[in-house]
């Protein structure tokens, strides 16, 4: 018998009598009087930064004005698909020197400062991880209270890959001292717009 069948058979023989799934009552979940303020507070606590914008135009202006200093910068916000095509299948070697990337987040979570983005928004799965600095653009309207709410609003398998990002990469593996900038970005800034 194949290992698969042996495992499935042993599992079937040994599993206990069927129990029911619990009912998740959303009424018992925490409510934030001001989810945007809660999001901002948590984000700062986990090492993220936030800049508020009136609208998307302001963000566009700010990005184009940003001093790039000859660094490798990639902006996906309001870009033509075609202009990003070369990066779609770029390898880690080609992206190794990325300094800053601007990506659009789909949804933010007030309780933990996390932002969901999927493969379509990333262009290339490596971008949000390999860049030294990451900027996530988010509509304040798309902030929900908790992870329970978040999963009501996304489809995890809509694209082949998606992730929640909460702050910059970090580690405390040396004597529990928090160090920002482990293997992923050294900074995470959220551009939050309100229109």
């Amino acid at each position: 018998m194949s290992s698969k069948n042996r495992i499935l058979q042993a599992t079937a023989e040994n599993q206990p009598t069927l129990t029911q799934l619990p009912f998740i009552d959303f009424d018992s979940l925490i409510q934030y009087p001001d989810p945007v303020a809660a999001f901002e507070m948590v984000l700062k606590k986990i090492g993220g930064e936030i800049i508020h914008f009136k609208n998307e135009e302001e963000i566009l202006k700010s990005i184009s004005k940003a001093d790039q200093d000859g660094e490798f910068v990639l902006n996906t916000f309001r870009q033509q698909e075609g202009s990003l095509a070369p990066f779609k299948n770029a390898s880690a070697v080609e992206l190794a020197h990325l300094n800053r990337v601007y990506l659009c987040g789909a949804l933010g979570v007030a309780e933990n400062g996390a932002i969901w983005l999927d493969e379509n928004a990333m262009v290339n799965r490596l971008l949000p991880f390999i860049t030294q600095h990451l900027v996530l653009i988010l509509n304040a309207k798309n902030i929900v209270a908790t992870m329970n709410h978040a999963y009501q609003n996304i489809r995890v398998d809509e694209s082949g890959f998606g992730t929640f990002i909460a702050g910059p990469s970090k580690t405390a593996d040396i004597e529990q001292s928090l160090v920002i900038g482990a293997h992923g970005p050294r900074s995470l800034t959220v551009y939050l717009f309100h229109n």
């Binding site: 998740i24 948590v42 986990i46 979570v109 309780e111 933990n112 400062g113 996390a114 991880f129 908790t146 992870m147 329970n148 709410h149 978040a150 999963y151 009501q152 489809r155 995890v156 398998d157 694209s159 082949g160 890959f161 998606g162 992730t163 929640f164 990002i165 909460a166 702050g167 910059p168 990469s169 970090k170 405390a172 992923g184």
Partner: peptide, 29 residues
């Protein structure tokens, strides 16, 4: 997938006191 809403709220808080890990990556294809 909706059950992740329960587990991801518990995991990092129980582990290190963080509200969530920095990355919670969902691999499908």
């Amino acid at each position: 997938a909706e059950h992740l809403g329960v587990f991801l709220r518990l995991l990092a808080r129980s582990a290190t006191g963080q509200p969530i890990t920095t990355y919670s990556s969902h691999f499908h294809r």
